[in-house]
Write a protein that binds this DNA or RNA. Structure first.
Lengths: 332, 332
DNA sequence: GCACAGATTGCACAGCTGTGCAGTGACAGC
DNA sequence: GCTGTCACTGCACAGCTGTGCAATCTGTGC
């Protein structure tokens, strides 16, 4: 048996008895081919299992159909939902998703990110994780448009669309809700690797609390993950007094909530109110019922799509995604 | 401003004052280039932001670095964890992940899957969802190796590696555990879109129950998702009598568990025992503490990697992934 | 100074597609 | 029967890289 090879247009042309150009044209809408030839070519292609090589096509055109999706922890429930929604939407436009996990151990993240450009992606979408400056420069030099979701704005003058949920408003909403619940001693839990978006949530929260004369403890340590919430709860709730906790991420807030309820035996919202940020699908589950600040996934996805649809030479834009309070059962 | 273009090797060659071949060689390990030339080339590349075009490279070689990852619902916690682990592992080997979401609405799934071949992926890994026969044929014709994870074996003679968790053993373990807990009337919840793997889990479970003279109700309806578990619990537990439920997926089992506990006010494991299958990260959370059958993610990932590493002409193989019972707090 | 080995270098082609351009044939109009 | 039009068709090249092969250069031994 000969070693298997990808079927090329030349193979199809040979079988159909036409020139290779004809095959190419048969797959180009609006190109000049006779109906008879097109039929014969499609039949031959079907028989051989031919598919147009998009790599070669990309080589010839100057934009590819590839979009780079960059993220850190895909098992974070909100990121996973985002990935799910975004990949569906992109495919709906005929675009393909090249995944890049920045959590790959031991490797130079910057190098891995740059790898995306090796595939001539037309866009790079940053879902989570930091954007090294040299990556941004690389994208600009190669004409790949960047989309930053809830990331800090890049240095002056660089080409990147920003999609920003209203972190400040979200932080304020969370603070006001806790105050309305009667909380007098609260804490905010940020991860150690705090992105500007998360910092902004926490800062807005603290500002409101300060204005109302409520003392705030800030817990900023550990990865941006469930265990951080767990550890924060253990430490913060070691001695009594705290009556409200804001987790800057649903995942963190769920760690706090579960530890308070099931490990420390506290009643939520009786003894303690907990509020999160994101509105991940599992926050709604009856095992949690987490009150949280929703950043609409639909709006986020729509904005990303819009950013991607812009022509390469269009000036960078900033998209604002609204947030809203979702009342459930973890705040008094 | 001129429209941005990708930097090519010719641009670098011009700047460095060498031939284009030299640039190519400077990026090929072991190729003959003088140290001085290599340095000059790398400097020029750095200045321009050049990166080797892997699309063109793929064109020339006959294997690409692209692996197609196909899945249906990435927000399923186990699938998300799998995606996370697998993308890390693949990148660690210098491979890239092309994502394909089969849940894309309104489109022909088969067509979308075939799209993967347009990018000349060297492997197609099927994480979830069905594998249409024509996709398998297409892969074979184009020499792309397929890896099916917990999928039914393809028709005789087709080239595809199988990675199978021991579904039957898992189903038996679940049944025996429920029997040991003293359950006398049990149910198994399968989704409507039942894959063979999930069917096998359910069947093995039923077989053991039948042998022990325990009546089993089978609930097979709805998507493979959390809400299926919710609906199943509402329907199955409408009248009392049931004392054990096996969800063929953790996600389903969690739907059952939460509905029983928080909506129907049942005590688990007091009134009802619940057991799942997968061991997703969130099953361990103290809000759930789900007793389940673990299919080791590490083993799954390792087997996938091994399958991918095999040369294209190697005969297809079957990898068995062991399962084990993980005791937590939802079975008496 | 010369021959020779070894290290570099550049040319030219392969790999696969899209497309401008010229060429072929059919067919209508006279 | 001749000519102009029009729909196809195929050639040849561009787009970017890897690599065999021949050519060039460097240095060494005599």
């Amino acid at each position: 048996m000969t070693k298997p090879r990808f079927v090329s247009a030349a193979d199809v042309a040979r079988l159909a008895g036409v020139s290779r150009s004809a095959v190419s044209r048969a797959y180009t809408p609006g190109a000049a081919v006779s109906e008879a030839a097109r039929k014969r070519i499609h039949a031959a292609a079907e028989e051989l299992g031919y598919r147009v090589n998009r790599l070669a096509r990309t080589l010839h055109q100057d934009r590819s159909d590839l979009v780079g999706l960059v993220g850190g922890n895909f098992s974070n429930p909100y990121i996973a939902a985002q990935l799910d929604a975004l990949s569906c939407a992109l495919q709906g436009r005929g675009l393909q998703c090249l995944l890049m996990n920045t959590a790959t151990a031991g490797a130079d993240v910057s190098e891995h990110l740059a790898r995306l450009l090796d595939y001539r992606v037309r866009n790079v979408v940053l879902l989570s994780g930091a954007a090294p400056d040299d990556l941004i420069r690389l994208c600009a030099q190669n004409g790949a448009r960047m989309v930053l979701i809830n990331r800090p704005p890049p240095p002056e003058g660089t080409q990147a669309d920003l999609i920003l949920a209203d972190s400040a408003r979200g932080g304020r909403l969370a603070a006001e809700r806790l105050i309305a619940a009667g909380c007098r001693r609260v804490a905010v839990v940020v991860s150690g690797s705090r992105t500007t978006a998360k910092k902004a949530r926490a800062e807005a929260f603290c500002a409101v609390m300060a204005a109302r004369g409520v003392a705030v403890t800030t817990w900023a340590d550990g990865a941006n993950a469930y265990v951080t919430g767990v550890e924060a709860a253990r430490s913060l709730l070691a001695q009594p007094g705290l009556d409200g906790i804001f987790g800057v991420t649903d995942e963190i807030a769920l760690g706090v909530l579960n530890t308070a309820r099931h490990e420390l035996g506290l009643s939520v919202p009786g003894d303690l109110s907990v509020i999160g940020f994101d509105d991940a699908p599992i926050s709604e589950w009856s095992s949690h019922g987490l009150t949280t600040i929703r950043q609409s996934l639909d709006a986020l996805t729509a904005a990303t799509l819009e950013a991607i649809d812009r022509p390469a030479e269009a000036p960078p834009t900033r998209f604002a995604v609204p947030v809203e309070l979702v009342e459930r059962t973890t705040v008094a």
